[in-house]
Structures are given as C-alpha cells and as structure tokens.
Design a protein around this nucleic acid. Sequence first.
DNA 1: CCACCATGTTCCATATGGCGGAACACAGTC
DNA 2: GACTGTGTTCCGCCATATGGAACATGGTGG
Lengths: 254, 254
Amino acid sequence: MPAALRPLHDGLALLALLSDASEAQGVSAVASRLGWPKSRAHRILAALVAAGYAARDDARRYRATPQVLALASGVMSRHPLRAHALPVLRRLCDRTGCDATLSVLHAGRSLAIAVDSPAGRPADDPFSTLGRTSWLHGAANGKVLLAWLPLAEQESLLSTLPLPRLTPRTITDRRRLAAELETVRAAGYAVNDRENHPAVFTVSVPVFDGFHRCLAALGLSRRPDDANALRLAEPLKRAAAGLTRTIAGLPPRS
Amino acid sequence: MPAALRPLHDGLALLALLSDASEAQGVSAVASRLGWPKSRAHRILAALVAAGYAARDDARRYRATPQVLALASGVMSRHPLRAHALPVLRRLCDRTGCDATLSVLHAGRSLAIAVDSPAGRPADDPFSTLGRTSWLHGAANGKVLLAWLPLAEQESLLSTLPLPRLTPRTITDRRRLAAELETVRAAGYAVNDRENHPAVFTVSVPVFDGFHRCLAALGLSRRPDDANALRLAEPLKRAAAGLTRTIAGLPPRS
DNA sequence: CCACCATGTTCCATATGGCGGAACACAGTC
DNA sequence: GACTGTGTTCCGCCATATGGAACATGGTGG
C-alpha cells in the first residue's frame, strides 16, 4: 500500500533532504537527488516555503528554516530519558574531555537524542549531533543497542541490516558482528575504534529501565590516539548505573 | 492562493501539534483540535506513522517519534551563530547559575536556537528549550530583537502583532511597548520581569553582525526573587560583544 | 554578440487519489 | 441493554496533484 498521501510523503522527504544538505539546494538539484520531475520539486518547495519550513535564497536556492526546530522542541523537552541524562552527560564530558552521546534505537539506526561536549570546545565527534543517526554495526552506541536487544529482534535486525564498509576497520561480516556482540555483552561495554569514522574512538554502555530492557546507549567519544577503553569504561558504567536507577521508577517510553 | 498541497500542509500542522502536545493524542482529539473531520485526521496520522515521524501507542494514541530530531539536526549543527554561541552560553550559565538562551527572530516570534543551563540542574525557564518560540512583547529576548530591528520592519511588526496578556505584568499597550523599546535601546539590554511567565525573570542583550545588524538576542533567565538586572547585564554584554566580534568575520545568514 | 546550456517557472489535459459523510465496529459506563 | 465515546472502513464525487512540454532567464564560452 505505498504511494499513500504522496504530497505529504514527498514533502517530508524533501524537508529531510534540505535539513541534511550542508548547502542550499536548487530546484534541479533537489529533483535529481530525489529522482523527481522538476515540476514536482518546484511545487513542493513552494509549499514548504509557504508553510515557513523552508526559505528561498536570493539565488533561488532553498534551505530549511530554524522553524523545523519547533517540530523537535516537544520531543526534546518531553523525553524523560533525555531530561535525566543531560546533567549526567555534562559531568561525564567535563571530567573526561570527551563528547558524550545518548542514543536510542530508531528505525534500524542509532539516533542521538542527547549530546554534550566539554566546556569551551565544539563537538569533535561528527556523530555527536542531536538527531543524527548512525549505522548500528559501526557505532559503539549502535553495538550496545544491538547487543542488549531481545533475541528475536536482534536476529531479525542482524539478518536484514546491510553492513556497509564505512572505514577500513568496519565489521562487515555478520558472523564477526555476532561474535563482537557476544563480547560486548560479556564485557558490559562496546568499543568503536575508527570503525565508522577514521578520527573517532568511542566507548559505550547500556542504560536499562526497571525491567532490564536496554532503553539507550551512553557513549564517550575521543580521538583515536592513546585511547584507553578501560579508563573511559569505568566512569561510564557508573554514570549509566546511576541513570538506570533514576529511570527505573519512571513510566516506559518508546 | 491557499489550499495548495493540502496533504502536506495538514501533515506538517499535525506533526507540529503532536510535537507540542505533552501527551499522546487520539484521532478524535486531533480532529477536534484542528477542526478536521475524523477521517482526515485518521488518514494523515496513518501517513505520518508510515513515514516514521509518529508512532501509535497501545491505546491507539499518537505521539511524535524521536525521528523528528533528524529534521532539526542539520539546522542545529549548521547554524554558524549557534556553533559559536554554545561555548559562550556554557560559560555564562555556569558562572551565573542562570539558564542561557540564544534567540533569533522568526515569523514574528522569538525562536530559541541555542540553550544551556547550569551543570547538574535541568532547565528552569520553561522557554529555555531549543526550538521553543515566545511572544516578542513578553520575552526579554523578544524585546531585544524588536528594539534593534530596522525601523520599517519594527513599525510594521509593532502595528500588526497582537499583544496578548500573558501574565498580569505583560505590556499590552502599543505605546508603552514602543517606549519600552526606546528604553531598551538606550540601556543596551532588555529586562523581562514576570511579563511572560510568573516565575521567570530574564535579562537580554543583542548580538550583532559586522554591519551592526542585530542577528540574535542572548538572554539569562532566573527566578524572579532578588533578581538584580545589573549584575547579569554586565557579563552578558561582555559575552555578546565577544560573540559579535567572532561573528563579524563570518558570512551573514538568514 | 549570439548560440548554447542549465536552470527556474508556467501551463494544461488527464485521471489519480484525496475527500468527508455515513455506516460500521468496539469499548467502557451508567 | 441502551448509550456515548472512541477508532476504522467504505465509496462515489470531483478537487487537485501530476509530469511533460513550452516558456522564461541568465550565465558561459565560442
């Protein structure tokens, strides 16, 4: 039953494209990227502008307006995990000098719902951006989310997910990935050493709810040099345990 | 030329509604809030779910998913002002113990594009949420944005904006508001003393680009008790001046 | 200077697919 | 068991999205 409410579907796709694009996009660029006829791209861009979610440059190129933030504000302020995690992230990255990211599983990817970086420095880790998603097999947070997933879902994901090679070190073999997840579960934390970006090393631990279901993954990222997993893993585990304790009393949330 | 691309328009409206709503909404609730027939609400909700931006509860009620964050991530990470402002916000709120908010003018409202609160405490100010918008006449940031607007636009806004009473102290008279803006320009900062929310006191200063155009407003919020505007205004002014200096070399941005 | 290409915009006959009222199903309540 | 509130499905009508082609526009290079 595809092709339902096509204007809506297309509009959201276009908005996502604009949001992702680093530069303003023209009608033709949009049309070719999405495989649309120009007239459609034009029509939908005009509608997005009319709705205030996109703006047209002097050069007739389009970008997303800050109004899209309004769409996200509710989710950001309302998510209970996020609210409780923010102070924890702050302390973690101030103490370790790393970028801290809290991610949840969404649509087969790892989605960052809370982020912080050390005082006085913008985020280093290119994946440490609110709302940014990563491949599960490449990111430490992704491995954690995968490792503590109920078996049925884990197997289903493991067999259907594509495992593209993101860097030379990415795990692209399903058997090796399964073995890695075993290791992760045993150790209680996951490591990503330049497996999804050549300049990022991450350690991640799970955050549970009251029923020991893994709700999220909490990760610390730094440059790969002299990285010492254990040094990061211990404070991380303690922080996650604290979060788990705080969350345990709260109602669950998708 | 209204009523163009209605499914898109409606879908965005619905998504905004879901995002704003504090609780999950049922089909009927949505329909009545937007004045739609139930069938339309149902159809569009289904489409949003199919697109992954909404999720259906066990109780058949709908909420926005974290995927909407993905729409905002680009805008957040790409906005140059925001990137440079984040460390400044961090220092400000750690030193003063207040919530810090950077806002821009968007569609006749003040829109928060960067936010921070002191370490170890969630945000106090209910308006200190990324993407949240406020009335220009009630918020300190809004007054600043209004006060340094080019005269033509300022007058146009001043004469068209409704000035609803938000608290007993809100300025609802256009003449008084104009006088207040005069004062703000003269002082170099704006104050909002429970004019917006009974428990919020805010001081705000402008951030300029290289041509002395006011790009944004930088505000500090705290509880109204023992608030001392001058104590906050001075460090604020210094921080904003620093930001202005940093920004001056950067290309302008809507 | 003009031919050229790529881009943005407008137009239009067609039929796709959104439309909403009404009928249906399902709970929970008095 | 009648009732009121949900959410869901159905269907004939016709609004309106569709995309190709024609029309602008403007920058580039021969």
